[in-house]
Simulated assay, not measured.
Amino acid sequence: MLDFKQLARQYKSELLDRVMPFWMQHSIDREYGGYLHCLERDGSVFDTDKFVWMQGREVWMLSKLYNTVHTPDVSEETRAQWLEAAIRGAEFLKTKGHDGALNFYFALDREGNPLVEPYNIFSYTFAVIAFGQLALATGNEEYADISRRTFDIVLSKTDNPKGRWNKAASGARAMKGFALPMILCNVALEIEHLLPQDFLENTIETCIHEVMDVFYRPELGLIVENLTIDNRLSDSMDGRLLNPGHAIEAMWFIMDLGQRLDRPELIERACHIAIAEAEYGWDKEHGGIFYFMDRLGRPLQQLEWDQKLWWVHIETLITMLKGYQLTGNTECLAWFKRVHDYVWSHFVDPEHGEWYGYLNRRGEVLLTLKGGKWKGCFHVPRGLLQCWKMLEELAARPV
């Protein structure tokens, strides 16, 4: 049996002593507002462009810490610094991050001038949870209103997330992606306090159906990344694509919804799918979970398919630990141990704090950056926070 008490201390210390101090020291832009997140291994800035979804993620993370970390060894000064930094990021997003009608850009320059149009729906979804979580922290009704209104825009765009920036030719092979219904499973619970009950429950049921009954394919025993509009498999590069990390992450979202709805059978099913995804995606030669796979074993268009990414593994830690916590499934616990051993021996930087994001297939560091266009103050601290809290709860259970 694992020593849950010792593991809880390990995850807590990594979060509070090494990861968050890295972002607090290097990320906050005190000159122009918002956050600098293109950071090298030692925290030095290698680019000053600001990606809006990363801004939203950092606002959310700082607000979440403020709202949930209440321990004697975390000072009120530290919590106040988290909140001040969250407000700084939110004000930058509020004034610079969108076009005035809450259409959130994808990228800005350091001063906040738009660089890339609001084509990416995830700029919106992370703004939703950022302002929603900060509204909880501050009681600021303006933040709550921004969250609600942006969520309405997200829901209005589900049939065509990229809008007029969609590159597909008219009448071309029409596909829909797993990423949006997946993230909406999480977003809906994040802003539960801002939504009417009936609306929330209808949204949740729609998301569960899409994830568990549409994108999960019983004939494969796996979740696919893309389907045709009429929910069929497509024998194309996009249609054959699998992303084990996405599927595994989605399962802890589903477990949370199963708790919220008191549906233990949904949690059990999510556990079994997560285990199947981990077994399918695990690199049996070098360890770690592949980034992308093809369900027919054909060559992939993603040249990074065999890399080992930080978020895939930290999300797997959350999912497997949550699965064990909620069901007692020992397969989940064994997977948590396997991935824990891989993560702590490959991704952690003992010298500078934060984690590496990109390893090659053999598990060697491929890029030394700690933050960039795709990696920021989100997956690592969120995962450490979740695992710390679950491990503490497990440690407190009677033997």
Rank of each mutant, 00 (worst) to 15 (best):
D29L: 04
L233W: 10
V224K: 01
A80G: 14
E58W: 12
T206V: 05
M212T: 08
E364R: 13
Y35E: 02
F4I: 12
Y11P: 02
H379V: 11
L242K: 06
K64I: 07
D230K: 11
K12N: 04
H246F: 04
C38I: 05
Q133D: 14
L180K: 04
M24P: 00
V187Q: 05
E285A: 09
E210M: 09
H98D: 05
R361Y: 02
E265L: 12
R298P: 01
D49W: 02
E219A: 07
S156G: 09
R9V: 12
E205R: 14
F292Y: 15
H340V: 06
F347V: 01
D306S: 07
G281A: 01
D262H: 12
W344V: 05
W335P: 09
H37A: 04
K389P: 06
G221M: 03
N231E: 08
F122P: 06
G163Q: 04
K176R: 15
R295L: 07
H313A: 09
D262W: 11
R57V: 10
T71D: 15
Y216D: 00
Y119V: 07
H246K: 08
L200I: 06
Y143A: 10
G56V: 02
M175Q: 11
D235E: 15
L7E: 13
Y216I: 02
A127N: 09
L242C: 00
R57Y: 14
M293C: 03
W82E: 04
G177Q: 02
E40G: 13
D29P: 09
W82D: 03
H340F: 06
L189I: 13
F199I: 08
G258W: 13
F122D: 04
A127T: 15
V45Y: 03
V312R: 02
Q301N: 13
H98F: 07
R232K: 15
L359S: 11
G221N: 04
E14K: 05
L261N: 10
A276E: 09
L385M: 14
Y119S: 08
E315P: 06
W310M: 13
Y324M: 00
E364Y: 06
F22A: 01
A137F: 09
G34M: 01
M390T: 15
T125N: 10
A247S: 14
R240W: 11
D341P: 08
M24E: 09
S63C: 08
A86T: 05
R9E: 13
A137M: 10
L93M: 11
V187F: 10
F131Q: 04
A172Q: 15
L366Q: 15
R110A: 07
L65E: 07
W311T: 01
V348E: 10
I208D: 03
L391Q: 04
Y11C: 05
Q307F: 13
T158Q: 14
N186Q: 12
L189W: 10
K162M: 15
H70K: 11
E225S: 01
A86M: 03
D294T: 00
L102M: 12
G34L: 00
T330P: 03
M237Q: 14
A101G: 11
A127K: 07
G132T: 03
L39M: 12
D262N: 15
A278G: 14
S13K: 12
K322Q: 15
A8M: 09
L102Y: 12
G221L: 00
P181E: 06
R217Q: 09
T228W: 01
G171I: 12
F347Q: 04
C332T: 03
R18P: 00
N231H: 14
M320Q: 08
C38S: 15
E192P: 00
A130T: 02
G132Q: 07
